[in-house]
């Protein structure tokens, strides 16, 4: 609960900022389009922003009640420091980085069979999932099946 209180404190502030930005932007939409506010494209976004402001204020109030302003801030900073040095965080970062590499660099630039083969063999090798021969076999089976079904049978282009 203590940890959740720190998170709630920080997220509620972030959400309040987001809702304020949205209120301003929704008002700008109403001015841009003209006509009454209730018919403008900013009507629902403004309502949602107000609801978000209300709910995040409730969350902030709850977190301050349970831990106080200073204690929440200090608690979050100390959690952040320990998270930065934790093994889980490092592993998550590495996992995320590999997935990002495949998503943003390899998939849009390389042919599907090449990007997917590199990605799968690389991940299984890094994680020591199985022997390299088995990794290559699994990769060939997966890539071949996807390629055969989508590209050959259904004529659907792959990334």
């Amino acid at each position: 609960m203590e940890k959740q209180s720190h998170f709630d404190f920080v997220t509620s502030i972030g959400l309040m900022i987001l809702s304020l930005v949205m209120i301003v932007d929704s008002y700008r939409m109403a001015i841009d389009v003209g006509g009454p506010l209730y018919a403008s494209p900013g009507m629902l976004p403004m309502m949602l922003a107000l609801l978000l402001l209300l709910t995040s204020t409730m969350l902030l109030r709850r977190s301050i009640r349970s831990g106080g302003f200073g204690k929440n801030l200090a608690g979050f900073l100390s959690w952040f420091k320990s998270f930065r040095n934790s093994r889980k965080a490092r592993e998550m970062m590495l996992g995320g980085l590999i997935l990002a590499l495949y998503t943003f660099i390899m998939a849009p630039r390389l042919p599907f069979w090449m990007s997917t083969s590199i990605f799968m063999i690389l991940v299984m090798a890094i994680l020591k999932a199985t022997s390299i021969t088995k990794s290559i076999l699994i990769t060939a089976l997966v890539v071949g099946s996807i390629y055969g079904i989508f590209q050959v049978i259904f004529h659907v282009p792959l990334p």
Partner: peptide, 9 residues
């Protein structure tokens, strides 16, 4: 560790 790369693809 074998299943998840396949799932992501």
């Amino acid at each position: 560790t074998i299943l998840m790369p396949i799932v992501y693809v």
